[in-house]
Computed example of a mutant assay.
Amino acid sequence: MTRFGIFVPQGWRMDLVGIGDPVEQWEAMTAVAKAADAGSWDSIWLYDHFHTVPRPSTETTFECWTATAALARDTRRVNIGQMVGCNGYRNPALYAKISSTVDVASNGRLYAGIGAGWYEHEWKAYGYEWPELKDRMGAFREAVEIVVGMWTQDEYQFSGKYYSVDKPINEPKGVRQPHPSLWIGGGGEKVTLKLVAQYGNAANVGGGDPATITDKLAILKQHCQTVGRNYDEIIKSTNLNVFPLDAGDDPKAATEKARGGIDFDEFAANTVIAGEDEIASRVDAALSAGADYIIFYVPGVAHDLDLVARAEAVARRFG
């Protein structure tokens, strides 16, 4: 059975525009999380970003880990993840401590996402040094090792080029065994996918594109063979941006609130705006390419909870 997740409206993709009060914006996010929790979704997801896309704006973007912790207490069943946590925004020892705490707060429902990071504007705006790619990836490699070490060992020590830790006390280490579920996002072939093979419970690749999914998973499989990891035990996830239309809907009119002021053509370039059959065919193509876990981003759910149910109707076809 294919499992499905859905993003909550956090603001990063301009998906809270039109809701003026910050408390109402938060409640719109929570409402989607609760609707997913009441349904058959396996997970809910947040982005780890500070400024909106496709362009930075003064619109709301709720902080990822604060929201993760709060939603852990607003829900009872669904897993809660980040797609994905940016390594550059938190020291990895702090990340290990935060994620362990949230895993307990959620009673073992955390999907702890981590990646190297890419949004240069945010890094600089918040005062983080923007390293060259080789240094971002080098730091990311060390960070994953530290996080897993702190999740699994007492008196853990690490001394590297970018980070060092000296017996940090990380108690409790979490609830899920043998450690919180680690989702490593990105398709980097030399570092990221190798880290998935070594440490990850799940990968996230391809952005729903079947050709990319196939290529990246073939490389992941090679890395698994090299390090002696069972490829089949790793979750292979991919993201799809979808807007489920009802029969007879005019796409421009139906997506007006969901677009948050973004031009329709720009919006449509990154979103499958279609009925259930077409969206299901996109899911099927991703699964045929090797994915086994689908995460939907559904713009507009902050304004219309029925979109959660429409997207779930697609997911149920693969149950």
Rank of each mutant, 00 (worst) to 15 (best):
V102P: 01
Q25E: 06
E129S: 14
H303P: 02
N87Q: 15
V314D: 04
R90L: 11
I80V: 14
D277M: 09
A291V: 07
D48A: 10
Y89T: 09
L94V: 15
K236T: 05
D166Q: 10
G248A: 11
L94Y: 12
V148N: 00
L94W: 11
G127C: 10
R76F: 07
G275I: 01
A211G: 08
R73Q: 15
I273C: 03
N91Y: 11
A139C: 03
D37Q: 14
V272Y: 08
M1V: 14
G127R: 10
W151F: 14
V227Q: 05
R73L: 13
V23F: 13
G319C: 05
I294H: 04
D21C: 13
K257Y: 03
L133P: 03
A125W: 09
D154V: 10
T101K: 02
R136L: 07
P244W: 01
G127Y: 09
L16T: 03
Y119F: 15
G11Y: 04
V78T: 07
Q177L: 15
A143Q: 05
L193N: 09
F4E: 00
D166P: 00
V283M: 01
D21T: 13
R55W: 11
Y128N: 11
A67M: 15
R77D: 06
A269V: 05
L287A: 08
I146D: 02
A280L: 06
A315P: 01
Q25V: 04
E142V: 03
Q153C: 08
P56C: 11
A96R: 04
V227E: 06
R310C: 03
V175A: 05
D42T: 12
L182E: 01
L94A: 14
P172C: 11
V144W: 00
G200H: 02
L307R: 12
G228D: 10
S100K: 02
D37M: 13
R259K: 07
D263Q: 14
G5E: 02
H223N: 11
G20Y: 07
L133Y: 12
Q222K: 15
A253I: 13
D246S: 14
A258N: 04
L220N: 07
F267S: 02
N107W: 09
Y89K: 10
F50Y: 15
W183M: 09
A313S: 15
F318E: 04
R13Y: 08
D215P: 00
Y95E: 08
A247Y: 13
E27P: 07
G160D: 03
G149E: 04
A254Q: 00
E233R: 14
L193D: 04
L182H: 06
T66R: 09
C224S: 11
N107H: 13
G149C: 04
P210W: 06
E278G: 10
G185M: 04
Y89H: 13
R176M: 11
E266K: 13
R136Y: 04
N230P: 01
V205I: 15
E276N: 12
G85Q: 05
S106D: 10
Q198Y: 12
R3C: 02
W118D: 12
R317L: 13
R77G: 08
S43F: 10
A203I: 05
T101Q: 10
K34H: 11
L110S: 06
A31Y: 06
G160Y: 02
G188F: 02
D292R: 08
L46A: 06
Y163T: 01
A289Q: 03
T61D: 00
I184Y: 03
S181W: 13
L133V: 14
A202C: 06
L182V: 14
V23H: 10
P131W: 09
P299G: 02
W118R: 07
F50E: 05
E171K: 13
A274W: 09
I295C: 09
